[in-house]
């Protein structure tokens, strides 16, 4: 599963870099709470993606019962984890929920950005 490790590393690091850049920007414009939320949400989005990739060999190998149990456990664990930053943002004033929500989608946004923007620009550069 080297391909999965590569994609996990690539998108997770890109998502974190994007979150930190976004957070710096937010802090500069005076929205510190949104910046903090962005980083916190992205961190958990990355952990979710890592766990998703981690569980793939377990869900694809073994008996059907084992696969189903691993898939169900993976979903429960990951959703419980994703709830953490949302709860924190609703309990702690210095973390804004809008930042957290955007952060939770940062891996997906990075996937889209990588495919539609970066690859397009790199293909233009190659031609």
């Amino acid at each position: 599963m080297e391909a999965v490790r590569t994609i996990r590393k690539k998108y997770c690091s890109q998502a974190m870099v994007a979150a930190v850049a976004g957070a710096v920007l937010m802090i500069l414009v005076g929205e510190k709470a949104i910046g903090k939320g962005l980083v916190l949400g992205t961190l958990f989005s990355v952990v979710n993606f890592v766990l998703m990739a981690h569980f793939i060999p377990r869900t694809m190998a073994g008996s059907r019962a084992m696969s189903s149990a691993a898939a169900f456990g993976s979903i429960l664990l990951r959703f419980a984890l994703l709830a953490v930053p949302l709860v924190v943002s609703l309990r702690v004033e210095s973390v804004h929920i809008i930042g957290v929500v955007i952060g939770l989608f940062m891996v997906q946004l990075t996937l889209m950005f990588d495919h539609f923007v970066r690859r397009r620009f790199s293909s233009i550069g190659n031609t």
């Binding site: 599963m1 080297e2 391909a3 999965v4 590569t6 994609i7 996990r8 993606f49 998703m52 990739a53 793939i56 694809m60 959703f79 994703l82 709830a83 949302l86 709860v87 609703l90 929500v101 939770l104 989608f105 891996v107 997906q108 996937l111």
Partner: peptide
């Protein structure tokens, strides 16, 4: 390698709907 990589990306996007629901639930 290629198939599992694509599956992971596809599943990550499909999961967004559940993340919307999670946000509203929380």
């Amino acid at each position: 390698g290629e198939v599992v990589k694509n599956m992971l990306v596809g599943q990550a996007i499909a999961e967004s709907a559940a993340i919307f629901a999670l946000v509203v639930a929380i």
